[in-house]
Design a protein around this nucleic acid. Structure first.
Lengths: 221, 221
DNA sequence: TCACTGACGTTAGAAGTTCTAACACAAGTT
DNA sequence: AACTTGTGTTAGAACTTCTAACGTCAGTGA
């Protein structure tokens, strides 16, 4: 596919707008992402940007899409880097990469996992991008085979199996899926509270709390 | 303290505004909470409301304060109701009350735990209200004495002890604190993802996942 | 009872926001 | 060279928060 000069310029303009939007996001939160302000900083008038983004929601959707892709690439890189290491080390590597991504750009993590934009419905490709991170996680955790685990609430096994089927990854042991999802929610639990500043007044280091969770994860707790 | 007719009327007006603000929050998210729109629905003009709230942030702070108080009262009620039950049942009671509060009014849960308002700094009394929920949780979990538990990352014990001291609750075993905080982050992990709709495309019942976490919690996992 | 003070609501308006419409111009295409 | 398309402009509608100035009316003290 040939890219004309115009197409290239257009892409650059879009990228510049998104770059500035991310700065606004970091500084002022999602409410502070203003089409007008972005345009002004780019040296054009407000309405000019509507040639590049259908509306503000469209711009934010792009930011969300990019963030999911970026997160997926970060954890996939960790998985690739530890390809020939023992399973526990790979799990730790994943968890560390995941946390690093989150705490180095809390605003983007919040964009993905914080309050949903009202009326926003994630497009299909965004959901697929989100799945990539989960798949990488399941892949690493599944390495030592189905884990021993306590009683599963009735019904969940079937639902997890159905979920795996819909992801098109063939037959995955529901025990692995449950372990993965629970591990994920636990990591997210710590990260979410850290990134939204809830640990602030408590005065202890969230990284240590995170490590405690990772420890119990590799131990199979 | 005597309340004059004026004071009572003023309080009613504030309450009505907050009531409508909560409806807006539920329907349109925090961005949809508009001073102007609230005033219109109350049958007055926009600027009139500025006699009752310093500005929009002040109104939102009130909503946050109310939500923390409401949450604390909900879990404290559960704790009181199960006063003479065995410890495990009390833990389950707490977890159920906590989840019920969150899923019945997801917008309020997100107001407390979702993306923080940019530039918002929680006033001291709000932090104290948030602590009430945590204290109730610690209280129930502490009942069977310090739990057996795996290795604690070095440094965390001291920080937890310091945190307990600053809360003015005397000497609490750091093991209990760690268990409490970790239990809390795990419950929050599931709730947070549920309430922000992340489980939507996955098609399984978050309540079952939550139960799995509660199960492992009472088992001391 | 009269006068005063303070609370409350109004309109006007400044400075933002998103977003559409109409227009101008320059850059590719035929 | 003429035409089409992309990209920018200004104008403006309909919102938003929030301040200022101005009535009006209720409650209080003399």
């Amino acid at each position: 596919m040939t890219t004309t000069r115009r197409e290239r310029y257009r892409e650059e303009t879009r990228d510049e707008a998104k770059r500035i939007a991310l700065e606004q996001l970091a500084g002022l939160g999602v409410e502070g992402v203003s089409v007008n302000a972005i345009a002004k900083r780019m040296g054009v008038t407000g309405p000019a940007l509507y040639r590049y983004f259908k509306n503000r929601d469209d711009l934010l959707t792009e930011l969300i899409r990019d963030a999911w892709r970026d997160l997926a690439e970060a954890v996939e890189a960790s998985v690739a880097d530890t390809a020939d290491r023992p399973r526990d080390e790979r799990v730790r590597g994943f968890a560390d990469a995941y946390r690093a991504w989150a705490v180095h750009q809390p605003h983007r993590y919040l964009l993905l996992f914080g309050s949903p934009l009202p009326g926003y419905h994630a497009p299909q490709d965004t959901i697929a991008l989100a799945h990539r991170t989960m798949s990488a996680f399941i892949g690493v955790l599944a390495e030592s085979g189905p884990p021993a685990r306590p009683v599963t609430p009735s019904g969940l096994d079937g639902q997890l199996r159905e979920w795996a089927r819909s992801r098109g990854e063939g037959e995955v042991d529901p025990a692995v899926l449950l372990t993965s999802v629970r591990a994920f929610t636990r990591l997210h639990g710590v990260l979410s509270l850290e990134v939204s500043g809830q640990f602030g007044p408590m005065g202890f280091d969230p990284a240590l709390l995170y490590r405690a969770e990772v420890d119990s994860l590799v131990r199979g707790g």
